[in-house]
């Protein structure tokens, strides 16, 4: 189901959290709302779910204005950053919660929960309690619980922020493929740009309560609309007074660019960051691949020449 956000504004007291937000979320897509903390992205998610009321504007789901529909009537799957487990209920009963509300028969509940447990690979854990699960397992339980009601829309608030790096990376891939498999319109809120780039079909960049830019990750990365998006999405450096991506610089033969002194070489696996100082003292850093750096064999104090890559 597609979602339309139309002119949504929200203030808390005298703080303006969201200002005139208008955006379409296409059906079946995975959209990432990306922004620094305080950009209003979580509030926007809560407004879509009905957990918060917008001061003005409306939310349309599949062409229908749901602004006056209460949370429980919206049929939206929502996962909190802390997974909000029902700690007093077993994994089975957590997942069955929404089905019991719908007054499904016991046999039907058992069958559907079993399918969901298989889907999120928690078959063995039906009788456990949430506190006995790892972070990743708890998250999968929360996802299964949300999916149980066959939601029209799935909303994920910072879903990977509480996981350690490795589990987070696995979960991202898994959630991504699950979303593709189910084709359910999904919005993910995150402050982590690589997470957003990696997962999303569509990126929405928020800053100070406004949508700054929306588009595919490639579009937004390649043609950032303003300085904020530029600096927020991926690394930037300055060279001869202009901001640019560090991989848009390269080393060249003397006379074909600007003479600089090498001040630092950082090896980060595949990537190597070389910090250089130009004659006026300005620092710039250049991103090289490991192979490129191997060929150059820079050490601190060396002199070199850099220029913009000719693409």
């Amino acid at each position: 189901m597609s979602i339309w956000l139309k002119n949504i504004s929200k203030t808390f007291g005298s703080d303006s959290v969201l200002t005139d937000v208008t955006q379409e979320i296409p059906e079946g897509s995975l959209t990432a709302m990306l922004g620094p903390s305080g950009s209003g992205k979580s509030t926007l998610l809560r407004i879509i779910a009905g957990l918060e009321k917008a001061d003005s504007g409306l939310v349309e789901i599949n062409g229908r204005d749901v602004s006056s529909v209460p949370v429980r009537g919206r049929n939206i799957g929502f996962c909190f950053q802390d997974y909000a487990p029902f700690n007093q209920l077993s994994v089975f009963d957590n997942i069955a919660y929404g089905l019991k509300v719908k007054k499904l028969s016991k046999a039907q509940i058992r069958q559907e929960v079993a399918e969901l447990l298989a889907l999120v690979r928690l078959d063995e854990y039906a009788d456990r309690y949430p506190r006995q699960l790892s972070g990743g397992q708890r998250q999968r339980m929360a996802l299964a619980r949300a999916l149980a009601i066959k939601p029209t829309v799935l909303l994920l608030d910072e879903p990977f922020a509480a996981l350690d790096a490795q589990v987070g990376a696995e979960m991202r891939q898994w959630v991504r493929s699950l979303q593709h498999q189910l084709g359910i319109t999904t919005i993910l809120v995150t402050h982590n740009q690589s997470e957003a780039m990696e997962m999303a079909d569509q990126l929405i960049i928020l800053n100070e309560g406004r949508i700054v830019q929306a588009g595919t990750p490639a579009e937004v990365y390649e043609s950032p609309k303003d300085e904020f998006v530029h600096s927020f999405l991926g690394p930037i450096t300055t060279f001869e007074g202009t901001a640019l991506r560090p991989h848009h610089l390269e080393f060249c033969d003397a006379g074909q660019g600007v003479g600089v002194e090498i001040v630092d070489v950082l090896h980060l696996g595949f990537e190597v960051r070389v910090t250089v100082k130009s004659s006026d003292g300005a620092l710039t850093w250049v991103q090289l691949t490991h192979d490129e750096a191997q060929r150059k064999r820079f050490t601190n104090g060396d002199f070199a020449t850099i220029r913009k890559r000719i693409s």
Binding site: L51, G77, A84, P85, R145
Partner: peptide, 22 residues
């Protein structure tokens, strides 16, 4: 906190059910 209660609401539960079950 309120996250569990809010989750229950998104799953379709009304205020009394949320109070007694969560």
């Amino acid at each position: 906190g309120t996250h569990a209660e809010e989750t229950a609401a998104t799953l379709g539960a009304g205020p009394w059910r949320i109070f007694f079950t969560i």
